[in-house]
Every structure is written in C-alpha cells, then in structure tokens.
C-alpha cells in the first residue's frame, strides 16, 4: 500500500502547553514533498500498524469526535482547513508533557483507492539536535542545529481513511513506539490523550486470548519441562507487569523459545497476533488459576500461580538435573476423592 496522490499538506511547530498562534501553515504540494512523504509512509509501515477506534460520542447522530470531525473536514475540505489544523495543533500542545521538546505536527491529505474516500495522515516529528557540516573558504564548519527528525523513535503517526459519512474514519492505524512504555503518561500520550482513541483489541479480549493461548501451549508441551518452565515464567512475569501493553507476538518473542512459542502462537488466529492490549491481572489470574504438579510418588499438588516461588508458598528447586517441590503449610480442608 502506498500513501496515494498528495492533495494537500500542512505543517505547524508545536511546543508543550503552547497557546495560539502556532508557526506554520499550508505547504505547497510539489513532487519533492509527495516523494518525501511517500518514502516516510513506506518506511514507517503504518499501513500494518496496530489499529485504534476513536471514542466517539455514542449518542450523537454524527458520531461526533474532536479528531475524527476535524480529520473528515480537512480531508474533504468542507470547512476552513487552517482553523481546523490549528485546532489540532492546540490539542497536541495541550496533550504534550512539559518535558517534551517542540514537535512538528504534519498533516497530509491523499487520494484513497476508493473514489469516495480520502486518506489523512497525521504525524508528529520531535525536534532533535543534529550536526551540519559545511565547507566555507576551504575550511570545514560544524554547526549544531535543531531539526525535526522524521526517523526518530519518538515520532508518532495516525492513518485515517474513509468516506465523508457516518462510517468514515471511525478507526485509524497508529504508529507509536512508546505505546508499550511502562510509564502510562508516556504510553497514553498519543493514542489516549491526543487521538482520544482505544486500541481495537480491548484489554478483556486480549487477556482472554493470552490466557487461552498459554493454557493451550501448556497442554501441548506436556513432557517438555523446558518449554513448560518457559510458559510458567511468562505467566509469572505477565502477572507482575503493570500497565504495559503486550501483543501475543511480543509475549512469544520475549519469553518463549520455538518449542513453547509454536503451540502458543498456533492457539490464536494470525490476525490476532499483533493487536496490543494491557493484561488485566484479576481476569488473568482467574483464567490461568492453577499450576498442577504430579510428583514421582504419585502425589498431585495444585497450586495457585500467586503462591509459587514466593515466601511461604510452593518452592521449586533444581538438584542434579531433577526438579523438586517443597511446601509447608497448614491444612485447612481435606477431601476424599476417587482417582478419576
């Protein structure tokens, strides 16, 4: 997918909490600009980036939303565009953290494959210091400049596409390498604060999917102690993480080798592997619940994950190549059961 023919473009410099006026305006559409934006679009791979849905007013007949409304009006040129773009610049300034450096807010409108639709790209490129080497009178001169870096890891983008009606531009593809940051104010700045959107995979759905995939992988790796230990480590680590966004792919990459990753990834549809979500701990614990150990003497120990490898809980140690389980706790209840 390419960006599509450039129709119009706007750029503004925005500093945190800055009030209007903003420096910038509409940029002339030239082949060089089209080419530069096209390459930035291609390299960013935003067309395959995670998807978000705008948190629209569900009672409004037009599905009103500040960013979506502005995007539709800018893309289809139905209202004075500069006022709308400056409105988005003000929104960005408000969402930016005081510690942030100024950013370049860029917006470009492109043709979409469907004639009735338009494509709108929103970018923020952070200001960074760069060197500029020049030759003057045969002598090199090195200057330190402030420039907006289009390859920065701190850049953000949103790709909206659709017709100018109730179904248009309800969702966006979002590029934000900080959305998985543990600091929520950093992670939420672009998607939650500025775009006022939610990841398309809800935390509930993601947590259920993750638990189901882990359980399926655990069952399928029966007899493979290494793979099962990796899965247990992943479960333990995910239970301790707070606020970080994960995808099924990221869990596999971070915690699992091939033997555990293959059944884990095989338990979800390929379309579901990249979607990001936050693990809901209570739900995750409820869905994962217990780890079951069968010991060499026939004793079966079923332990809640919360009680494994914590003081006073079940302790697993490795001695001479065998894994051993230790537990010392008061019996509160016992049942006589058939061995089913």
């Amino acid at each position: 997918m390419t960006a599509g023919r450039l129709i119009s473009a706007f750029a503004y410099e925005v500093a945190p909490k800055q009030a209007a006026p903003y420096q910038g305006g509409e940029i002339s559409v030239t082949p060089a600009l089209q080419d530069a934006l096209g390459r930035t679009f291609d390299r960013s791979k935003i067309a395959d980036a995670p998807a978000v849905t705008f948190t629209v007013d569900m009672g409004s007949p037009t599905r009103s939303h500040p960013v979506r409304d502005a995007a539709l009006a800018i893309a289809f040129d139905t209202s004075p565009q500069l006022a709308l773009v400056e409105g988005l610049a003000a929104r960005l300034a408000d969402a930016m953290d005081n510690r942030s450096k100024p950013s370049l807010l860029m917006m470009s409108v492109h043709e979409a494959p469907t004639a009735s639709a338009r494509r709108l790209l929103l970018w923020t490129f952070p200001q960074q210091e760069v060197f500029n080497l020049t030759m003057r009178g045969g002598h090199p001169s090195l200057e330190l400049l402030d420039a907006f870096n289009r390859e920065s890891n701190l850049r953000k983008a949103a790709l909206l596409e659709g017709p100018n009606d109730r179904t248009g531009m309800l969702s966006a593809r979002v590029l934000d390498l900080q959305s998985t940051a543990t600091d929520r104010s950093v992670a939420d700045f672009w998607i939650v604060e500025f775009l006022e959107a939610q990841m398309q995979m809800s935390d509930v759905e993601g947590t259920q999917l993750l638990a189901r995939a882990l359980r399926a992988a655990y069952t399928k790796t029966k007899g493979d102690d290494v793979a099962q230990e990796e899965l247990s480590t992943a479960i333990g680590a995910l239970r301790r993480q707070t606020g970080q966004r994960w995808s099924i792919d990221e869990v596999a990459t971070r915690f699992l080798s091939d033997a555990a990753a293959t059944p884990f990834l095989g338990a979800v549809r390929s379309e579901e592997r990249h979607a990001a979500f936050v693990v809901e701990h209570d739900r995750f614990d409820h869905l994962i619940q217990y780890r079951r150990f069968t010991l060499s003497n026939g004793v079966v120990v079923s332990a809640p994950f919360a009680e494994i490898d914590v003081p006073g809980g079940v302790t697993i140690t490795e001695q001479s190549g065998t894994r051993r389980l230790q537990l010392d706790a008061e019996i509160q209840e016992e049942q006589v059961r058939t061995r089913a």
């Binding site: 998807a51 659709g162 179904t167 969702s171 398309q200 995979m201 549809r269 379309e271 990249h274």
Partner: peptide, 21 residues
Amino acid sequence: FVIAEHWKPEGWAEESEMPVT
C-alpha cells in the same frame, strides 16, 4: 460496533467497500 482489524477474515482487505461496522 466497529469491526476490529483482527476479526477480519483472510481476503477481506483485498475487497473494496467492505463494511466497517
């Protein structure tokens, strides 16, 4: 409700003018 990208079956993206809700 919006149709989430990860629910769309294979082949969906190749069609034009698919529903979004």
